[in-house]
Design a protein around this nucleic acid. Structure first.
Length: 463
RNA sequence: UCCCCGAUAGCUCAAUGGUAGAGCAACCGGCUGUUAACCGGUUUGUUGUAGGUUCGAGUCCUACUCGGGGAGCCA
C-alpha cells in the first residue's frame, strides 16, 4: 500500500488504487446506516479528501465517531469515484488509526468564523486553516519561481551576510548585534567601547544585501540574493515587517532600461507560475479574500508596464485638477495618495516611475547628465503600491565619492565599495523585491502579517 | 512615531449609568450519502490592565497594554 497525499487521492486517476493517507481531520459528519464522513487534509493541496468510514471498522464506535477538528489520523483504504457532488473521489476506509486526539473544548481552531487577528495569536495552529494553508502554498510556489527564473537566465545565487558592519545607505534603523552584557558594558570615556564587542566594532543585522550583490556582480556578471532582511523602523502598518524576505538581483553591464525589462519579466513570471501551479488556492483567494485578485493578476500579466519619469508624473498630478493632501511640486517625494492616483485612477496599470530628483535618493544611484536626477526606478502595482525599488548604480569613482560626502557619509568606510569603481568599473544595475509584497498582491490578503509564517513587528515577536 | 477607532463567553458580536445576552462552538439526545449538514435541549463570564468619578460603571474620566484603519519610513 502506497503512502500518498490528499492532492493525489483527489484526482480521478487515483480511482481504484489502495492508498495510505495521513493528515488532520477537518470535520466529521455522521450519516445514515451508521457510517461517517471524515474530511481529511494533509497540506498537500487546498481541498480535503472525503473519507467514508463504515460502522464495521473495529474502532468505529470507540474512536471514529469521536473524531473531530484537529485530530491526526492514518487512513488506509481504496479510492472510489464519489457518487455525490462536491468531489471527484472519496476514500473507503479499511482502517483508521488515530495518532492524536484534539480536545474540541480547548482547541482554538474551529470550523468557522475566526478573524485573522485572532489566528495571529495562535500562529502555531493557523497553518491548519484554509487561508493559511493556501498562503503557505502560494508562498512556496513564488519562492520556487524566483530561483527557477534566475537560474534559467544564468544568474548566480549568492548568500549575502546577515550580520554587517556597514551602516549602509540609510535604509532605516538597524538592529544591533552584540554580545556585550547590557548590565555592565565596557566603557571608554563614558561611552560603550565596541572594541570589546564580539567583532571588535559595532555590528548590525543587514538591511539589504545590495552592496555585497554589487561585489559579486562586478566580477561574475549576473547574481541575485534571496534572504531575510531586517529593519528596526517603528513602522505600524499592514505593509511593513521588521523581518521580511527580499530578492535582490544585481547585473553588470545593465543600464536602467535593462533593469526595468528584467523587473517586468520577473514579476510576470511569478504571477504566471502562481496562477498555473496554485489554481485551487488562487480561486479560494478570489472567492473569499479579495474578489479582484485574480482579475488584477491577469491584467498585470497581459499589459506592458508603463515607463514614466518622475518629472512626467509630477506633470500629470499637477494637471489632474485633483486636490491632494500633500500639494504636488517638483522635488517632493511622492506620497501614497499620489502613487495610488497614478496606478489606480490615471493609468489603471502597473507603472515604473524613474529618474527621481537626486535629493530624494541614496548616494549609490547614478547621477543623470542633467545633474538634477538619478537613475532610480520604483515599480508600482495597483492595490499594493511600491513592490520594487531599484536603480542603475553610480560607477564613476569621483561622482560616487562626491555623492557620499553630499549625503554625509565617510568614503573611507566604504573603501571596498569604492574599489569596485577604482578597478575595472562597469555600468551595473539592480533592484529589490519584497517577497511579502508580492504575496499581498497575489492573494489579496490585507495584512502583511498574514502572508509570512511568523511575523515580526514592533512589540511582537511571538512563536 | 502621529491621528482616529476598538478590546464583553472558546470564536463572532449585542447590551439609555440600574439583575451581562444572542449566534456559532462544546456537551446530551434525535434524524440523516453527508458537503460550513440539520432539529431539540444543556453549559459557558474577574466585561484587556491599573486607578478615578458615582448610591451604583461593560457603559463616564485618566494612564497603560494589545489590536484595527489612516499617515510617515520603505520592500
Amino acid at each position: 500500500m502506497d503512502r500518498t497525499t490528499v492532492a493525489l487521492a483527489r484526482k480521478e486517476e487515483s480511482i481504484g488504487k489502495k492508498v495510505r493517507l495521513q493528515g488532520w481531520v477537518r470535520t466529521r459528519r455522521d450519516s445514515k446506516g451508521g457510517f461517517s464522513f471524515l474530511e481529511l487534509n494533509d497540506g498537500s493541496c487546498f481541498g480535503n479528501v472525503q473519507i467514508v468510514a463504515d460502522a464495521n471498522l473495529s474502532n468505529y464506535e470507540s474512536e471514529v465517531k469521536k473524531l473531530a477538528v484537529g485530530c491526526s489520523v492514518t487512513v488506509e483504504g481504496e479510492v472510489l469515484k464519489s457518487p455525490a457532488k462536491g468531489q471527484a473521489t472519496e476514500v473507503k476506509a479499511s482502517s483508521v488509526i488515530v495518532h492524536g486526539w484534539c480536545d474540541a473544548e480547548t482547541y482554538p481552531i474551529q470550523k468557522k468564523g475566526a478573524s485573522f487577528e485572532f489566528l495571529r495569536t495562535v500562529a502555531h495552529l493557523r497553518t491548519r486553516t484554509n487561508t493559511f494553508g493556501a498562503v503557505a502554498r502560494v508562498r512556496n510556489c513564488v519562492s520556487n519561481s524566483i530561483h527557477q527564473f534566475f537560474q534559467e537566465q544564468g544568474f548566480l545565487y549568492i548568500h549575502a551576510p546577515i550580520i554587517t558592519a556597514s551602516d549602509c545607505e540609510g535604509a532605516g534603523e538597524m538592529f544591533r548585534v552584540t554580545t556585550i552584557d547590557p548590565a555592565k558594558p565596557p566603557l571608554l570615556d563614558g561611552k560603550v567601547d565596541y572594541s570589546h564587542d564580539f567583532y571588535g566594532k559595532p555590528t548590525y543585522l543587514t538591511v539589504s544585501g545590495q552592496l555585497q550583490g554589487e561585489i559579486f556582480a562586478c566580477g561574475m556578471g549576473k547574481v541575485y540574493t534571496f534572504g531575510p532582511t531586517f529593519r528596526a523602523e517603528n513602522s505600524n502598518t499592514a505593509r511593513h515587517l521588521s523581518e521580511f524576505w527580499m530578492i535582490e538581483p544585481e547585473m553588470a553591464f545593465y543600464d536602467l532600461y535593462d533593469n526595468m525589462t528584467l523587473a517586468e519579466a520577473f514579476i510576470k513570471r511569478l504571477i504566471a507560475d502562481a496562477l498555473a501551479k496554485c489554481p485551487e488556492d488562487m480561486a479560494f483567494f478570489a472567492e473569499r479574500i479579495d474578489k479582484e485578485c485574480l482579475k488584477r493578476a491577469e491584467s498585470v500579466l497581459k499589459t506592458s508596464f508603463l515607463r514614466v519619469t518622475y518629472t512626467e508624473a509630477i506633470d500629470i498630478l499637477l494637471k489632474s485638477g485633483k486636490t491632494f493632501e500633500y500639494p504636488v511640486k517638483w522635488g517632493m517625494d511622492l506620497q501614497s495618495e499620489h502613487e495610488r492616483f497614478l496606478t489606480e485612477q490615471h493609468f489603471k496599470n502597473t507603472v515604473i516611475l524613474h529618474d527621481y530628483p537626486r535629493t530624494l535618493k541614496p548616494f549609490y544611484m547614478r547621477v543623470n547628465d542633467d545633474g538634477k536626477t538619478v537613475r532610480a526606478m520604483d515599480v508600482l502595482v495597483p492595490g499594493v503600491g511600491e513592490i520594487i525599488g531599484g536603480s542603475q548604480r553610480e560607477e564613476r569613482l569621483a561622482v560616487l565619492e562626491e555623492r557620499m560626502r553630499e549625503t554625509g557619509l565617510d568614503p573611507t568606510h566604504y573603501w571596498w565599495y569604492l574599489d569596485l569603481r577604482r578597478y575595472g568599473t562597469v555600468p551595473h544595475s539592480g533592484f529589490g523585491l519584497g517577497l511579502e509584497r508580492v504575496l499581498l498582491f497575489l492573494t489579496g490578503m490585507a495584512n502583511i502579517r498574514d502572508v509570512i509564517p511568523f511575523p515580526r513587528t514592533p512589540k511582537s515577536a511571538e512563536f
